[in-house]
């Protein structure tokens, strides 16, 4: 890795720094009332209590671990479902023209439906809780994964195939030795987009009266007027989302040469 000059390292933190200062000033000088936007210190304190305090020592105290693990489980399940269906179907429709035509109207039609429309239906089908959220997450993450995999595998240079065929690579080995590595940059984009959407739909799924999870905490806090908890929840989701994206990228780079070298 190239070593960055110091000012280049500071660069990404400038905008968050300004925002934080403005926020701080707005609360200190009373530009916005406290019940709409609590000051940053309150947020830090609430965050500390939510994360580290003894459980049941107060409202929201120490609930983070239970909420986060419930949410992570839902995202993990939903996203995995989207991966195991999206990638194989994407490869199929990327390589087989018949499959592409067969799927195109259905996928594009379903894709046009805003994900939130599925919520009432999912509630009726699966009830409140785990299964509804997993369904929504999987549905939302499926489309970017499927579409990017299909586009990526479709654009693979046919010369690479011919080269593979002449080097004695059969159809099945070709999928793993040529097709997937060649399409890897787009597959990675699809996975990352899908994971981002997973978090969005996680919160949507958890807004519907489940007892635990980060989305549930945010909704619960709104009813009780605890703006500080809402903001803590948002920040934690942002952090977890970013961490999961990093984890995804690192894992892919660890296991696939083509992911490592496509950057």
């Amino acid at each position: 890795m190239k070593k960055l000059r110091p000012y280049r390292q500071i660069l990404p933190w400038i905008i968050p720094g300004i925002l934080l200062t403005v926020w701080f000033a707005a609360c200190r000088f009373g530009w916005v009332p406290d019940y709409l936007l609590p000051d940053p210190f309150r947020i830090v304190k609430t965050g500390y209590i939510y994360l580290f305090a003894q459980a049941d020592s107060g409202p929201y105290a120490g609930r983070f671990l239970a909420d986060a693990s419930a949410s992570l489980l839902r995202v993990g399940f939903g996203f995995s479902l989207a991966v195991v269906t999206g990638i194989p179907l994407g490869v199929l429709s990327g390589r087989v023209a018949t499959c592409r035509r067969l799927m195109s109207a259905t996928v594009n039609g379903l894709r046009a439906v805003p994900g939130i429309c599925w919520l009432p239906l999912a509630l009726v089908w699966f009830g409140i809780g785990m299964r509804t959220t997993v369904f929504l997450v999987a549905l939302a993450a499926f489309f970017p994964i499927y579409i990017n995999t299909a586009a990526g595998t479709r654009q693979v240079n046919p010369l690479l195939y011919q080269a593979g065929a002449m080097l004695g690579v059969g159809r099945i080995r070709g999928i793993f030795a040529i097709l997937l590595p060649a399409a890897m940059p787009q597959i990675i984009s699809g996975l990352r987009l899908g994971l981002g959407l997973s978090w969005a739909y996680l919160v949507l799924g958890e807004l519907t009266g489940v007892p635990n999870g980060l989305g549930a905490v945010i909704m619960d806090a709104r009813m009780l007027g605890r703006i500080d908890i809402i903001i803590v929840g948002i920040i934690l989701i942002a952090i977890l989302g970013r961490l999961s994206d990093l984890l995804l990228n690192t894992t892919l780079c660890l296991f696939f040469k083509s992911a490592r070298r496509s950057a």
């Binding site: 010369l159 690479l160 011919q162």
Partner: peptide, 13 residues
């Protein structure tokens, strides 16, 4: 029967 192609057909990864 091996082919050397006109363009670059190496595996980029």
């Amino acid at each position: 029967r091996c082919v050397v192609f006109q363009e670059d057909a190496l595996f980029p990864w």
